[in-house]
Amino acid sequence: MIWLQLLYVYLKIGVLGFGGGYAMLSLIQADVVDRYGWISLQEFTDIVAISQMTPGPIGINSATYIGYTAIHNAGYSETMSILGSCLTTFAVCLPSFLLVLLISYFFAKFRNNKYVEAAFLGLRPATVGLIAAAALLLMNKENFIDYKSFLIFGGAFILTWKFKVHPILMIILAGIAGVILYW
């Protein structure tokens, strides 16, 4: 059952994941944390942090990690858990694969297609909302434990927004800040 659920959830993310990694986050979170409870919200936040520091797109990173963890927590062996991560990573890419093959075939027709353009009139502003929702959903008591959390948030926000500090550097700085502030 859990195998089918993982397959379904990651195919869905592959089909509906418009607007890049950040916009995909709330889609992933809705099923993986809220609906099926495969991982906690805190663990989800940690994966996002780890994804910022490791190579590769967040979509793949989360699929691999969650495929493994969900199967592992369901009581399966290590080998089965690795198969789980293969399944989710495959599932999240399969829709892309089929779509790209289809579009490569009809490439000229897809470019400047009036239906695609019209759909994006709605999708583009909605993407901003999806990213905002991802940020809001993570602003909870598990991630913001005291006033120091808000200090770190404010500092990270200003450094990233105004001073364009690179996300990897930002994560490292925040980690150091955590060690110092919670010494």
Binding site: Q42, T45, D46, V48, A49, Q52, A135, L138, M139, E142, N143, F144, S149, F150, I152, F153, G154, A156, F157, T160, M170, I171, L173, A174, G175, I176, A177, G178, V179, L181, Y182
Partner: peptide, 8 residues
């Protein structure tokens, strides 16, 4: 320390 920064 990381978690609030991720939100930012």
């Amino acid at each position: 320390g990381l978690r609030p920064a991720v939100v930012a």
